[in-house]
Amino acid sequence: MSDTAMFAMKQVSKSYGSAYTLHPLNLHISRGELVALIGPSGAGKTTCLNILAGTIEPDAGLLHIAGKPASSYASGKHLAKAVGIIRQQFDLVGSLPVLHNVLAGRLHEWGFGKSLLSFLFPQDKHIAADALNRVGLSDKLYDKTSHLSGGEQQRVALARLLVQQPQAILADEPVASLDPARAEDVLAMLVRLVQEEQLTLVSSLHSVHLARQFFQRIIAIKEGRVFFDLPTADVTEDHITDLYQLTAGHGMDER
């Protein structure tokens, strides 16, 4: 495994029941790359991301994360130092103040005692304040999280990732529940932070437009296979049309 690989998949596959969700797949993502995963609903994007995140065990094949086999990450705490995840906006605990949601990114560093103490005397508060400052929410430190708008909540989730300090960020439709203007805003912020921290970003997206705008490389997945894997500049309209075209007997009944 070369040092530059953040994720390396070799013949990784996954099936639910008899049908393949993901056909044997080879994928190499280097450190510092910005990769968008696009494709029709149910094509296997989320499964692919979940395998990269280590939350789903592949049926077969090898996955290396940051140069080490995925199975060598003994606990969630070790994996959390390598990979951070952001999904749609239902990821936060609405009843807690923003501060504690952001500090949850430190839980992999903290013991249980320190985590409990933090409810009374917030620990590492400057780290959280700094992260919130970078996502433009420095005044929301003590606000109840459920009072924030959808876009603001996604930025809180970004702040939590900053506090977590992983080497790579996996984003599963991170802006799917936002309106177009806010979606672009949050995605721009995500990409900027990833570049500032020199992290790797792999994000699934509904919007081809956003994928083109923010990412260097686009991987298209269709029916559990890589449909194309190209630098953004080389992706043509024909590619996109072919990707989203409904084929007879497919497209509607897949998961």
């Binding site: 995140a53 939350t55 606990s75 969630g76 705490k77 070790h78 994996l79 959390a80 130092k81 990979v83 951070g84 995840i85 999904r87 749609q88 239902f90 990821d91 936060l92 605990v93 807690l96 504690h100 949850a104 990114g105 839980l107 992999h108 560093e109 903290w110 249980f112 985590s115 409990l116 409810f119 989730a157 939590r160 977590q164």
Partner: peptide
């Protein structure tokens, strides 16, 4: 969803209980 997110952030089971 919030529980999965906390787990991905490296929270232990006791931490999941008190933060989630």
């Amino acid at each position: 969803e919030p529980i999965t997110a906390l787990r991905a952030a490296g929270a232990s089971r006791l931490q999941l209980l008190c933060y989630g």
